[in-house]
């Protein structure tokens, strides 16, 4: 029995080695980002591929924060990402609930249409989108990005939310309605609290998608005061040189909101709230 419950030590070591290798592989680019950000500009090329910089400096961070428009980009990105995440999640939750619970005419067509929108490469539609946005006079505004991002994220977010609603037994709503709820009350008091993990996942997904989006931001915004952070990063690339140190420092700063956001929603993400609802 002991031999079954305790695997061979070599296997254990092998397992941890494999995990360690994967973690190192996944995190190495992140480490490199930090390393370059902290290396003084003069040493970037002389240090080359040495794993540890020969000197450390916070100069890059200082100049990014105080000597560039980075804070503006940052603010724009936060506004765009939060608005997109909120608007998309709200619409996707409503649509996902409808898809999950109601039978209505044309449901299959709507689903098919939403799937269809996911099949085009973005490059194909970027010109028409530009035309439309220009025609309604929204070029160079954060609104254009919020609207476009929301539109593009809704289909996937809807399917995501639908699968979360599908995971909540219909019996719960019916029990609530027998207990005296209207359908809306049942949704608010019983279903919504149970969908929080799903809502958090959707918010997180849409937030990161909007936060790191480059293509539309690049096309629709050309003025500094409406630039988002990924476009702003490109300003560190000039015609004759790339300011690696400042670019990486900006990249490190850009990680902060994403990390904070996930820290905030992770307690909803990990909960398996529906367990114990029905037979288990």
């Amino acid at each position: 029995m002991a031999s079954i419950s305790r695997p061979h030590p070599a296997l254990v070591v092998g397992k941890y080695l494999a995990v360690a290798f994967y973690v190192a592989f996944a995190l190495f680019p992140l480490y490199w980002l930090f390393k370059i950000a902290l290396t003084p500009d003069a040493l970037i090329y002389t240090d080359g591929t040495a794993l540890w910089p020969s000197a450390l400096t916070l100069e890059n961070f200082r100049s990014v924060i105080f000597a560039s428009d980075f804070l503006d980009y940052f603010r724009n990105s936060v506004i765009v990402s939060l608005s997109t995440a909120a608007a998309t999640s709200l619409i996707a939750a409503a649509a996902g609930y409808a898809f999950s619970r109601f039978v209505f005419r044309g449901k299959r067509w709507v689903v098919a249409l939403m799937l269809l929108t996911q099949m085009f490469p973005l490059l194909m539609i970027i010109a028409p989108i530009y035309k439309i946005v220009a025609a309604v006079g929204l070029l160079n505004s954060l609104w254009s990005l919020i609207i476009v991002y929301t539109a593009f994220n809704i289909p996937f977010a809807t399917f995501l939310m639908q699968s979360f609603f599908d995971g909540i037994p219909k019996d719960l709503e019916e029990a609530a309605m027998m207990d005296g709820c209207t359908r809306f009350q049942a949704l608010r008091k019983v279903i919504l609290p149970l969908t929080l993990p799903g809502l958090a996942a959707t918010l997180g997904f849409v937030f990161t998608a909007a936060w790191s989006e480059l293509l539309f931001a690049l096309m629709l915004v050309s003025k500094t005061d409406a630039m988002t952070f990924p476009v702003g990063l490109l300003t560190f690339v000039s015609k004759f040189s790339v300011d690696w140190g400042q670019m990486m420092a900006a990249g490190v700063l850009a990680l902060i909101p994403s990390c904070l956001f996930f820290l905030f929603i992770q307690r909803y993400l990990v909960q398996g709230l529906t367990s114990g609802a029905v037979k288990g």
Partner: peptide, 14 residues
């Protein structure tokens, strides 16, 4: 004004 007991119990898990 009718109460129902479901096969799945349908207790509110939260």
């Amino acid at each position: 004004d009718i109460a129902m007991v479901f096969q799945s119990y349908a207790l509110y898990p939260h």
